[in-house]
Structures are given as C-alpha cells and as structure tokens.
Design a protein around this nucleic acid. Structure first.
Lengths: 281, 281
DNA sequence: CAAAATCCGTACCATACGATACAGAGCATG
DNA sequence: CATGCTCTGTATCGTATGGTACGGATTTTG
C-alpha cells in the first residue's frame, strides 16, 4: 500500500489556494510547477530553481509554504498523486482496444468486453437481491458448480466463509452432496454456477434443493442453463472468447462484485468475525 | 560506431528484450520495475532495492545493463517517458467509461483496469516461455496456490488436465504435498499462485521444489511474492480494487490466456486427447 | 523621503545518495 | 568432486543534493 498524502487536497489545489498570498519569487516557482505539472517537482531543487528562474532557497521556501517539512516530503506527495493518476482510468489509452494485439492480448480484450457487456446489462435489483440473500446470516449458503465453474464457486465460498457463518461448498463427487439435502430448508440459499455444457447432475440436484424450499441463485452464461426453471434469481454473464474455450472472466468478476457487496452489507459483524478468525491462526 | 543509440525504444521494451539474459537478481529488479512501472524507478536506489528484495549494487548493475551510464540518467529517461505519456492527448480524454457507476460497476471497472494494465506490461517472451513449459508433455505440471488463489490454480489445472497428461493440483492440506516432492525432477514444472498476504508454507514448499530441480513458474501480484527468488518465470498482475478485498480478476484472465496458448501449442495431440476423454464419459 | 519590514540570493555546511572495490556464495563445467 | 566462473552482498568512498545563515536589494509605510 502506498502512503497516504498528508492532506486531503491535491497539491495543485493547495497551490491555487495560496498563490495570491505568495511573494513574487515563490509565485514564479508555483507557476512553473503548474506549467510543467508535476514532473518538474520530481527533479532536483537546483533544476527546479533554474527552470523557474529563481534561486534554490526560494524553491525550498515555496514548498515549506505549501506545508511540507522538507523537499523529499514534497516529492513523495507528488509521486503519490502520480501513482493514483496513472492507475485511474483517466490515464490509460482511451480506445476500446486496450491491450496490444499480442497472443495473450486477444484473450484479455475478449475478457474485458465480456465484463463490460455483462455488467451493463445486470439488473441492479437482481444484484442487490442476491447480495441480500447471501448476507442474511439466518440461513445457510450452499455453493456448487460444474466442471470448470466449480473453481469460481470455491473462490466465492472461501470469501463468504470469512464474512459469515454457515457457508458450505459442495465439492468433489456429486454422490456425496445428497446427504446435505436433508439439512436444507426455506431459510437457506443455494448458489449454482452453471455454464455450458450444462451438467445433468447439477440440474437434478438443484431441482431437489428447490423442492426442499432453498432459494436457488443461478449464475450462468448468456444461453441460460435449464436450471433457471427452479431458480429464484438468475444472473447471466457473457462468455464469448476467440479461443477453443469459453471465458469465465465475467463470471469471476461477478463473484468478486458479490463478495464486495456482501462485505459492505455485513460491514460491522463481518469485520469482527474476520478479526476473530485471524486471531485463531 | 558509438554505443547503441538506445533512444528510440521505450525502457519497458528494452527490459522485455533482455530480461531473459539477466541473472536472477537483476531479473527480480526488472520484474518489480515492470510491476510498478515506472514510479518505483523514480525513487532512490535504496528504496528500489528494498522493494525488489535485492541490494543496491544489483539495481545499479541492472540499469547499467539497460545501457545507462548512471542512475540519474536512467531516472531522466523514465521521466521523459512519463512526460510524453502524461501530455499526450490520449491521457486527457477520459477512457470510455466501461460500465455504469453502479455498486457492482465499480468492481467491474476496477477489474477491467487491472486486466488492461496487467496485459500491457506482460512480456511476450516471458508469456510464451511459460506457455511452452506448460505445453511440454515430457515433464509433469504441479499447481498450487494460497488461500484464495488456489481456486484459480484449480481452474487452470482442470483445463490443463484435459489438454495434456501429468497435471497434478496440490490441494487441501500442505502437509500432504511433501509426499509429491520425491517425484519432482528437472523436467517438471511447478506453477505457484501467490498473492499477498503471502503464505509462508507456500514459500517453503516452493524452495524445496526448486531444490529438486523443478521449474518454478510464479504468478503473483504487483508486489511480487518472495517466492520470486526461486522462480524461473515470474508474471506479476495488478490487484487494485475499491473494495476490502484485492481483485484477482487479472490473475484469472492470465490463467485463461495460458490455457488458450497451451491449447494452441498442443492443437493436434490435445484435440485427440479431448476426444478420447469425452468418449469415456 | 526616511525607516522598517519583507524578500531574495550568495556562500557555505551536513548528509544522504550513488558509485565502486572486494570477497564470499552459488553454480556450472569438466 | 574439484576448479573456475559468474553473480551478489557488505563495506566504504566521493560527491551531489538539500538545507541554512546572513547580508544586500526591494518594497512598504508613516
């Protein structure tokens, strides 16, 4: 993690605030900094001074007036701003073609398109309803997935288990799952990851869970698994990819979005629980 | 002829060109610079060295190998690149805001940015080298990951197992992993997913696997797991997210890109193998 | 217009920083 | 297993850099 800037306002704002009350020499320093923002501030005091046409001490008095203890502190603050700016969407290339068209880049661009497309069409109500269901600590949460998507179910389960009690990931052989059916009831939720080719066993199990009264939450692809028939909530994601395999990237990000949402919903209880769990390690 | 001009190519390209021929320590420096490009290079040698986990002279040798006379020259070149990047019209125009700013959309946008950023900095050579190692059917492939990233390891393993023989996912308790060490040899590859907080057990196991002669492939975050010390290949990904949790979306897409690449490399044998497997179901 | 206050640059100092010599560790090679 | 080579860290040095005291220049004010 980067260090936090000392103050909440950006340096350029701070300059704008005080530039009127500055003496002439320091004002020249301020103007040249703004004109070459922020890189001139990362160079040495002498270079900055020469560029501004003033002497080194004037530069140092200038940064002192801005509230910095010394010149390195000032530079560190500038770098922190730069880091934030570079990482923000503002600075990166604007076109949709985000990544160079290398071999790997094609896959990345497809994933980006899938994520974009998926989240543009996600129903906010649907999403918050699912999040609320997952955040409700009264019932249990069961998770299961297909041959590949089960990994994402596991990823979601690993996080949920830290946030709340009663998280069960049904892994391995389907034969063992049926034992859990007896425990399921109206208060419980069952999260199914199912993208094509849909596995018959998953559908069977989902139907039985639905009959037990569990709330079925289905995360599936744009073709929509037949399990939707039994599901209370269905969220489809896009999986198109220029590859022999479909891409589950959007599904993965959806899982992360749910994790974030549930974490916020259970901010207080969840934080305490995570502290407890950490203390046991 | 004087020394090479070295002006035209960007520094990141120059690194990608020569990273293969670098010794371990300098490669580590190169990786951390790419992962935190370019700001870590603007800090002092000592800070750069500490971040990379090497000593100051190694950093200086690294920049010397890139063709710079001294460290300030190197920093000046980085700043010149940054200046060009910041002032270019690209950076001012807001990138197509991918998704509406809903609650879930914030997570999606962060994931997109991470993927974009990650794949822009991935070295093509490094990527193809990893892909080749994973496609080589003579050795075995072992995969392992941390508490959360292990799900992605599993995802990769599930696909690789369809494409080629000899894929082993080390899951569950670490205690059981050590039994596999006896089987590891020079021909084998070990894929480690390790994002912070780095688990000590993973590092221990990786070191032992490296001593057995296995090729360590490390997929880690931008802070670079200490396992990089033992790794033959290191690919860092971005994990920044406006959430209580880091995002592994870029790591996931990287896994998918590798799956695609290995699939292409083994197009004929892999297709036959998949037909066989399907016929058994 | 004189006196005072403020501002600014020259000269100098302390130190943090980059650079280098050297020896030990690690690794490949025969 | 021995030998040579490459790589890497420790210790040290010279210097460039940030910092400061002080006197002259400039502006302000009565």
């Amino acid at each position: 993690m980067l260090a936090e800037p000392a103050e909440r306002t950006s340096i350029s704002e701070r300059i704008a605030d005080r530039i009127d009350q500055m003496p002439a020499g320091e004002r020249r320093a301020a103007q040249t900094l703004i004109a070459n923002y922020p890189l001139i501030g990362l160079r040495t005091v002498a270079e900055f001074a020469q560029q501004a046409g003033v002497s080194s001490p004037t530069i140092l008095r200038f940064v002192a007036r801005l509230g910095f203890q010394n010149y390195p502190d000032f530079q560190a603050a500038l770098q922190a701003e730069l880091a934030a700016q570079i990482q923000s969407p503002l600075s990166r290339t604007a076109s949709a073609e985000a990544v160079a068209p290398s071999e790997a880049g094609r896959i990345a661009n497809a994933a980006i398109e899938n994520i974009r497309e998926t989240f543009q069409h996600i129903s906010e109500k649907q999403f918050t309803a699912v999040s609320a269901a997952l955040a409700d600590p009264r019932g249990k949460i069961y998770l299961a997935g297909g041959r590949f998507s089960d990994s994402i179910a596991r990823y979601l389960a690993a996080h949920l288990a830290l946030i709340r009690p009663g998280v069960v990931h049904l892994t391995g052989q389907e034969s063992g799952w049926h034992d859990k059916l007896a425990d399921m009831g109206r208060r419980d939720a069952m999260v199914i990851f199912d993208i094509r080719r849909y596995q018959a066993g998953l559908a069977d199990f989902s139907e039985k869970a639905a009959r037990r009264g569990a709330t079925i939450i289905l995360l599936t692809d744009q073709w929509v698994s037949p399990i939707a028939r039994f599901a209370r909530h269905v969220i489809p994601v896009r999986t198109a990819s220029p590859s022999a395999w479909d891409s589950s990237a959007a599904l993965f990000v959806l899982a992360e979005a749910l994790i974030d949402s549930v974490t916020r919903a259970r901010a207080d209880e969840g934080a305490k629980r995570m502290r407890d769990i950490e203390s046991f390690r």
